[in-house]
C-alpha cells in the first residue's frame, strides 16, 4: 500500500489510498495452491476450507474504502487447471472523500485453460456523495470457465445514490465476448428514467462462461419466480456464455433474482 507522496503541501493535501491486492492460484496434485496471496489496502484475504480441488478465499474489507480519490486494484491469476472460489465478507461501500476526484476500483481476472473461477463478491454500495468508477477486466482462455456476479446498490437504505460507473469487459480466447458499461447517479442523463432503471436502485449481473454453452446455445429465460417488483432475464451471449441482467427496488429483491438465476442455471449458490 502506498499513499500520496508527502510533500511540502502535505498539510493541505489529504491522503488518498493506492493499493493492489494479488492472488495467484495454481493446480497441484488434485488441489489448488495459492502461491501468491497478497493483501493490500482495504482488501485482506482469508483462506477458507477448500472444497475438493477448489480453493476458497474470502475478502475482508478491513478499512473504510474506497473513498473518493482512492485507487484500488485486485489482480487474480488462475493458472491452468486450477479452481478458485472468491467471496467477500461484507459489501464494499463507496464513500465520499477528502478530494474532489473519483475513486477507481480495478479488478483484473485471468483464467487459464481448463481452469475455473467463481467470483461472487458482496454488492458494491454507492453512498450519497461518492463517485466510484469500477472496471472489471476478464481474460479467459478458450476452455476456461467463469461464474461472476456483480451487484450494485445505489444509495444506502433510502439515501440518494452517489455516482457509480462500472464497466465489465470479457475477452474470451482473444476476442471480446462482452463489453458493458453502466453509469448511474446524479448528473448522468436518464439513468433513473424508464429506459434504464425506472427507480430501481439495485442492479445485478450474473455472468457464466463455459465452453459447454457453445453448442447448443441456451434459450433466453425470463425469470418469473422472483419478487413482482423485480425483473430479470438470462440471455445467451454471442459466444459460449450466458448473462443474467436483473433490476430490483432493493438489495433483498436483487439477491432473490440472483438466487433464482443460480437455480435456473443449475449452479451452486455462494
Amino acid at each position: 500500500m502506498t499513499t500520496a507522496p508527502p510533500t511540502a503541501k502535505a498539510a493541505q493535501t489529504p491522503y488518498t489510498l493506492n493499493a493492489t491486492a494479488r492472488i495467484t492460484a495454481e493446480a497441484a496434485d488434485g488441489a489448488t495452491d495459492l502461491p501468491l496471496l497478497h493483501s493490500d489496502g482495504p482488501f485482506s484475504f482469508r483462506r477458507l476450507r477448500p472444497y475438493g480441488s477448489q480453493a476458497h478465499i474470502c475478502i475482508l474489507n478491513t478499512m473504510s474504502a474506497p473513498h473518493n480519490g482512492d485507487r484500488l486494484n485486485t489482480e487474480v491469476i488462475v493458472g491452468p487447471g486450477a479452481d478458485l472460489h472468491v467471496t467477500s465478507a461484507a459489501a464494499t461501500v463507496a464513500l465520499p472523500g477528502p478530494v474532489p476526484r473519483h475513486a477507481a476500483l480495478g479488478v483484473n481476472l485471468r483464467v487459464a485453460d481448463h481452469a475455473r473461477l467463481r467470483w461472487l463478491p458482496e454488492p458494491v454500495i454507492s453512498a450519497a456523495g461518492s463517485d466510484l468508477r469500477q472496471h472489471i477486466r476478464i481474460d479467459l482462455a478458450p476452455t476456461a470457465r467463469l461464474v461472476l456476479s456483480e451487484q450494485q446498490i445505489l444509495g444506502r437504505a433510502h439515501e440518494p445514490s452517489g455516482r457509480l460507473t462500472s464497466r465489465i469487459t470479457v475477452r474470451h480466447g482473444g476476442r471480446t465476448l462482452l463489453d458493458q458499461h453502466s453509469a448511474y447517479g446524479p448528473g448522468l442523463p436518464g439513468w433513473d428514467g424508464p429506459a434504464v432503471l425506472a427507480g430501481n436502485h439495485a442492479v445485478g449481473q450474473l455472468l457464466v462462461i463455459d465452453p459447454a454453452y457453445r453448442d447448443p446455445q441456451p434459450d433466453t429465460q425470463i425469470l418469473d419466480d422472483i419478487p413482482v417488483r423485480a425483473h430479470g432475464v438470462i440471455t445467451p451471449l454471442a459466444g459460449p456464455g450466458v448473462l443474467l441482467t436483473a433490476v430490483a427496488p432493493d438489495a433483498g429483491d436483487l439477491q432473490r433474482c440472483l438466487d433464482a438465476a443460480f437455480a435456473h442455471l443449475g449452479l451452486p449458490n455462494g
Binding site: 464497466r167 469487459t169 471480446t176 463489453d179 458493458q180 458499461h181 453502466s182 453509469a183 424508464p194 429506459a195 434504464v196 432503471l197 425506472a198 430501481n200 442492479v203 433466453t220 425470463i222 425483473h231 430479470g232 432475464v233 440471455t235 441482467t245 436483473a246 433490476v247
Partner: peptide, 20 residues
C-alpha cells in the same frame, strides 16, 4: 475495445420480455 459500451438494463430485459 475503446468504443463506448453504455448499457441500459431495462432495455435489455424488456426487449426479451417483449419478444416473448
Amino acid at each position: 475495445d475503446a468504443l463506448p459500451a453504455a448499457s441500459a438494463p431495462l432495455l435489455d430485459i424488456t426487449a426479451e420480455q417483449h419478444a416473448a
